[in-house]
Nucleic acid binder design. Structure first.
Lengths: 147, 147
DNA sequence: GATGAAAGGGCATCGCT
DNA sequence: AGCGATGCCCTTTCATC
């Protein structure tokens, strides 16, 4: 496996968490290294899989997806985990899916336009036959690290 | 308020979701625009608050934070929502916090090193509020949009 | 094995049309 | 919105500790 990260690697990661488009020169100045050294470290973090990518952060409410909800899903006794992942991850409204040890069996984080939209999605999930029950939690407010 | 986004804006957002460090030249080629035009659109998306920032995506397991959990929290009748946000968002292990309409009252998404670490956090949450009960869900596997 | 310095090619940025 | 010039940044190479 890869070697453990030193303090400078963690500094670089934190700087990139704050702003993923920071320039190498900017980072280099803050961690007291040359741009070449910073680039090598970032390249290494990508190669070892610590950094999986870079992305843009979006205010979903401004795009008209103002409602967030979690849907708890329960299956019959022995259900393949891959099945629920396949159904839910296909839906563009799905933000994340968590398979759970215990009760419920899975937790799906959804972003929708309105209640009718939400109902349609929950119906879709329920229609995947092995589901015994769902319970949907409406999100009033959410906070996320790095926003 | 700002004007609605057209199809090109959505294309640009999707390209940046895939790779937040994509160059303007690359984006311009894919949406059939000049780099200057793409830059103006991205600047406008930032000014109107649609784009809130850029960040790096990290494999937390490789950093030694291999365990994910959700903790459901229930309060006494009249508890201030801001209170739970204050405590939980201060913890570096907190990935996200959702306040919920109904039961439970809040959902906290945690990333921890091990079970002892998790127990310490749940104890902290229980100690710092007028919490009536918590229930912690262990995450077996997670999928997230854009990974 | 990792670093800093320097060169080149590419890219972002800005003014103009 | 496109075009073009300027300056910055990324990237690679090479020498050093």
């Amino acid at each position: 496996m890869a070697e453990p990260l030193d303090a400078t690697d963690h500094e670089i990661l934190n700087l990139l968490r704050e702003d993923g488009r920071r320039t190498l020169a900017d980072i280099a100045g803050r961690v007291t290294l040359s741009t070449a050294a910073v680039k090598r470290r970032i390249d290494r973090l990508r190669e070892t899989g610590v950094i999986t990518g870079f992305t843009v952060q979006v205010d979903h409410a401004k795009l008209g997806w103002g409602i967030e909800a979690f849907t708890e899903i329960r299956f019959f006794g022995t259900t393949n985990v891959a099945e629920i992942l396949q159904t839910t991850t296909r839906m563009p409204e799905t933000q994340a899916v968590f398979t759970i040890a215990g009760d419920p069996d899975a937790l799906v984080w959804l972003r929708v336009r309105d209640m009718a939209h939400l109902q349609k999605l929950v119906d879709e999930i329920r229609a995947s036959h092995r589901v015994t029950s769902t319970k949907t939690l409406m999100v009033l407010d959410s906070w996320m690290r790095g926003k």
